Amino acid sequence: MEYLYLLPIVFMIHEFEEIIMLPTWLDKNKAMLYMRFPFMKDKVDSLSNAPVFALTVLEEFIIISACTVMSICMNDLTAWYCCLIAFGL
């Protein structure tokens, strides 16, 4: 059961990297993204706002942590496996 704690930890390591690197990457590639995906201009602009992206990550972290705690307390891995598959895809 100890491996259950790794999902929130690995998720946050991955998301910290995105929070740090995404604004710089978007600044370099924004014009190309607008050209290739003009219908997603609003989404690209909202991603460049780091606090909004960080709040999205926080919401996902809360869901993953709740599933992990619930799975450990109830000794039922169904919710944890659902989170693992959803975020793995």
Rank of each mutant, 00 (worst) to 15 (best):
V69C: 04
I85P: 02
C73L: 14
F87G: 03
I72L: 13
H14D: 05
L84W: 08
E18V: 12
E2L: 15
F11G: 05
N29Q: 03
Y81H: 07
P23V: 06
A66C: 11
S65N: 15
N49S: 07
E17P: 00
V69K: 02
E2I: 14
L58A: 15
R36H: 08
L55Y: 04
L89I: 05
T56Q: 09
A66Q: 09
A50Y: 06
M1P: 11
M21Q: 06
S48I: 10
R36N: 09
E60S: 13
H14Y: 10
F53H: 13
S71H: 11
V10A: 11
I64C: 09
D27Q: 00
F39P: 00
N29L: 01
M21S: 07
M1Y: 13
E15M: 10
M12V: 05
C82E: 02
L33S: 03
S65D: 14
L55W: 04
Y5I: 12
V44P: 00
L58S: 14
A50I: 11
K41T: 14
N75D: 15
M35S: 09
M32L: 05
K30R: 09
V52S: 13
E59W: 06
A54Q: 04
E59N: 08
F11M: 07
S46A: 13
D27S: 01
Y3Q: 14
M32Y: 00
M21H: 03
G88R: 09
M40V: 02
D42I: 05
W25Y: 11
L55G: 09
N49G: 03
N29V: 00
I13W: 04
L55H: 05
L4D: 03
L22H: 03
F87C: 01
I72G: 04
I64P: 09
Y81I: 04
M32I: 01
M32V: 01
M40R: 12
D27Y: 00
C82Q: 05
I85R: 01
A31G: 06
V52Q: 12
P38V: 05
A66K: 10
T78D: 15
M32H: 02
V10T: 11
G88E: 06
S71C: 12
F61E: 11
M32Q: 02
K30I: 04
E60N: 14
L47V: 04
T24A: 08
D45W: 02
C83P: 07
G88S: 10
I20C: 06
K28M: 04
I72H: 08
I72F: 11
N29A: 01
F16D: 05
L26D: 00
T56R: 11
C67K: 04
D27C: 01
A54F: 02
S65Q: 15
L6I: 07
S71N: 10
M35G: 00
L58M: 13
L47F: 14
I9H: 02
L84A: 11
L55F: 06
T78L: 15
Y5M: 13
E15S: 12
L77Q: 15
F87S: 01
M35K: 09
F87T: 01
L4F: 14
E60V: 07
I62T: 07
Y3S: 15
L7N: 09
A54S: 08
Y34F: 12
T68R: 06
H14E: 04
A50N: 09
K30M: 08
M70I: 06
I62C: 04
S65R: 12
I9C: 01
L7I: 13
A31P: 00
D27P: 00
K43D: 10
S48D: 05
P38G: 05
M40H: 05
T24G: 07
W80D: 00
A54H: 00
P8Q: 08
C67T: 08
